[in-house]
Amino acid sequence: MAKLTLVQAINQALDHEMTRDDRVIILGEDVGKNGGVFRVTEGLAEKHGEHRVQNTPLDESGIIGAAIGLAMAGMRPIPEIQFEGFMGPAYDQIVNHAARYRARSRGTVTIPMTIRVPVGGGIHAPELHSDSPEAIYTHSPGLKVVMPCTPYDAKGLLLSAIRDPDPVIFFEPKRVYRSFREEVPEEDYTIPIGEAKVVNDGDDLTVVTWGASVFQCLEAIDGLPDDVSVELIDLRTVDPIDIDCIAESVQKTGRCVVVHEAPRTAGLGAEISALVQERCFLHLEAPVQRVTGFDTIMPYYKLELEYLPDAERIGKGITECLAY
């Protein structure tokens, strides 16, 4: 079985689905001959034709708005927004149109569309190339939001997203794009949207996270004393949240720490914390803790590592929660 990076696994999933389903079309800035700025669509224009891997004008609102039209008219568009920071101009199309058409038309107009977006910090990029806006789109009803962090999960979740009858935002943590390889089967397989994964089994405390933070959490857990047993959950999908998986774990451990790159206030940590107290109130040994980005603008890269939760800060959070 081939060992692939996250970039390669996503590329393979796109290639696979374009071959299988001729309704699938990729559109975005630089996705054609250049293969996207991260090379995620590399080789696809050559193989499937530039009309199916369409370079678009530099217009995020246009990309999503046109993709909505494509989806309505029988295609399966996969628009790419080059960086999460550039989703702003497309917000209206995503939230006010893509997310609403099914409800607005009482099921007669639907938008099967997968919006691919590189996300998150830690790669020393310029301004607006390092943000984590997943909570914004989770807060908007009518969208599913996926953020896998391993090559295997990315392929299986991307195939599910493309085949989903509704709009899905597929966030790709760019810090992980080429950070490691793992075995990815060439054949067709899917991972259901909304299903979390237990990365590490443990009994003393549950850590819930997703995206690149999974790896910071693993590092943090490695640094803990041997007698501390931590269960690590990678949500993989942040909307809908797999609360059953979280609740089962927290009912066992009694303690929960949520870790994310995005700012703290009204971030997904707040939602997960509320869900945990609803489902696990009598099991809790400590308040649910959040280790997150601060309530500030994501700083330029000289200070980005001060902003992002790292193993040290996560380790501290776990220790504090255990000490409660």
Partner: peptide
């Protein structure tokens, strides 16, 4: 958050 960022995990 600023004043506790070095002493606490959670600001």
């Amino acid at each position: 958050q600023r004043d506790t960022m070095r002493t606490s995990s959670i600001g």
